[in-house]
């Protein structure tokens, strides 16, 4: 018997005789008993809800994100948000900013905002979008003072940003620099973790889960020494959530 089969044999012996497929609609079987249509229905209902409730959800996010340790600022439009971001960049005397390539940033607004400050802005991109290698990009992210991203979603329950890495979104842009600025737009806010995972389940069933996802809920922190809270351990110690709309 192979090692793998032995492993499973041990478990099957421990469990005793049973039918091969468990009752997926019984108690405790969670959502697996739902078929794809049910998931789609839920997912669509969520989309409708977050559009309709986008205002109150932004309010709720503003509160929970503040509680989670984000520095939160809210603006009617991107231009005003840009002024605020320029202020942050100036205050920390940043020299190098890295950014993701989400739609909200792809039009080059960060470059435009920071043009007059003489700050280098590097989009974290590979291939035809840039001449940098993976290692060079990593170096740049490590040297950067600030990382700027949009988000895929935000979650009002927990004050979180959700970033799903892809060709447009680097894993490191929101991790290596000591400061992270996340721009959340109206309509991106989900009420709770549950809605996020329903949407992700829909993505999975569509073959679109991707390899990675981060929920970011405040600065990097630890209380490992004497229960005393410190921030900026390995991830960014200062995180800004800019709400637009």
């Amino acid at each position: 018997m192979t090692e793998r089969n032995e492993f499973f044999n041990t478990i099957r012996q421990a469990l005793g005789p049973q039918t091969e497929a468990p009752n997926l609609t019984g108690t405790g079987s969670s959502a697996l008993g739902d078929n794809s249509d049910a998931v789609s229905a839920r997912s669509q209902a969520i989309q409708a809800y977050i559009d309709e409730q986008s205002g109150p959800l932004m309010d709720s996010l503003s509160e929970s994100a503040t509680g989670a340790g984000w520095k939160v600022a809210r603006f009617d439009d991107l231009d005003k948000a840009g002024d605020h971001i320029v202020g942050i960049v100036r205050d920390v005397e940043a020299n190098l900013v890295v950014r993701s390539r989400q739609d909200v940033l792809e039009s080059g607004i960060v470059e435009a905002w920071l043009a007059s400050l003489g700050v280098d802005v590097v989009p974290m991109a590979l291939g035809e979008h840039s001449e940098h290698t993976v290692d060079e990009l990593r170096s740049l992210a490590e040297r950067a003072d600030i990382g700027i991203t949009g988000v895929d979603y935000a979650i009002a329950e927990t004050g979180s940003c959700v970033l799903i890495p892809s060709a447009q979104v680097s894993r490191l842009v929101s991790l290596l620099p000591p400061i992270h600025i996340a721009i959340v737009q109206r309509g991106q806010v989900l009420p709770t973790l549950d809605e996020l995972f329903t949407i992700r389940r829909r993505d999975f069933l569509d073959g679109n889960l991707g390899s990675y996802m981060n929920l970011i809920s405040g600065p990097s922190r630890s209380a490992d020494i004497e229960y005393t809270l410190v921030t900026g351990v390995h991830g960014p110690g200062e995180v800004h959530m800019i709400l637009v709309g």
């Binding site: 929970s64 509680g67 989670a68 340790g69 329950e157 927990t158 004050g159 979180s160 973790l193 889960l209 991707g210 390899s211 990675y212 996802m213 981060n214 929920l215 970011i216 809920s217 405040g218 600065p219 990097s220 922190r221 991830g235």
Partner: peptide, 10 residues
């Protein structure tokens, strides 16, 4: 309410 990071790897 939630940790600073929740990371999923697939």
């Amino acid at each position: 309410r939630i940790s600073s990071y929740v990371t999923t790897v697939t």
